[in-house]
Design a protein around this nucleic acid. Structure first.
Lengths: 150, 150
DNA sequence: TATTGTTATACTCTATAACTATA
DNA sequence: TATAGTTATAGAGTATAACAATA
């Protein structure tokens, strides 16, 4: 009487008890993975991974930024930034220039800006669907997630 | 006047503008990664990865469950379940038995139950710290995350 | 002496395909 | 014909170490 029977529910295993559903870390990971899968579907037609899209968005908002700062912000190690930047340069989405003898600055090209805008539109559409299903305030959720991220 | 200056803030890059901080997918991923890193620190002393811990928790709550159901619930592919189960068996944390000619049932041993309990205690301690920093209701957050996970 | 960028390499997690056996 | 489990392998993402050049 008090709890509905939940007929026709999606089965993800033989009716197993799920203590994991009460664990914040587990639910965070599952939500993140589901969201990333949706984003990947949205971005694949543009030839972008989620990491590449975030790179374009960050560099696009900060023309002339340092490669090392981008890596720090995205938590991408220097050794992994090199091939990422190389891919973006090979597609003429970004240009780089020396700042001093060891640092390089990054700036989106016109093509990079155009592709970033397409990516942002697709990401926005993906997020819109999720937001509509939310039962709590989106900004409160974002604030909580940022506080967890530290 | 209205917004504090946020002096002494943590620098994660040369003062770059961060449009990513308003994207749900990005914040979800960052929060998930931070939480997983904390969990890993808590579980490594037990010789467990996050995936192994969730395996022990799920099997522990469902003695005699099918290996295939565990895989479906944890979204681990069959091909990847085999070595996981083998590791847990090699440590005598789980036993398996044939259900029929093709399915196998999984049950925690006493050692498996003991280790799961240690893992749950450490996970609980990790989550407690995060919950105390939350500005929204934890159950509301869990519900939102589950709805995003689908 | 610390930082930037690069190269090469290794490790983990996940994904795919092929195969056997069984329901 | 679909499912369960196994095996082998491939891929993406990330991590480490060593190096040269520069601040």
């Amino acid at each position: 009487m008090m709890a509905g029977k939940r007929e026709m529910e999606k089965e993800h295993g033989g009716g197993l008890v799920s203590p994991l559903d009460n664990l914040l870390g587990y639910c965070l990971r599952r939500a993140s993975m589901a969201m990333m899968a949706d984003l990947m579907s949205a971005l694949t037609p543009l030839g972008l991974s989620a990491g590449e899209a975030s790179f374009l968005i960050l560099v696009g908002a900060n023309p002339g930024c340092r490669q090392s700062d981008v890596g720090r912000m995205l938590e991408i190690k220097r050794a992994n930034m090199t091939p990422l930047v190389a891919r973006m340069k090979a597609r003429a989405l970004v240009t780089d220039a020396p700042i001093d003898g060891r640092s390089r600055s990054l700036t989106l090209t016109q093509a990079g800006i155009a592709l970033r805008d397409k990516a942002l539109a697709r990401i926005g559409a993906t997020e819109k669907k999720v937001r509509q299903a939310l039962t709590i305030d989106e900004n409160a959720l974002l604030a909580s997630l940022r506080s967890i991220a530290g």
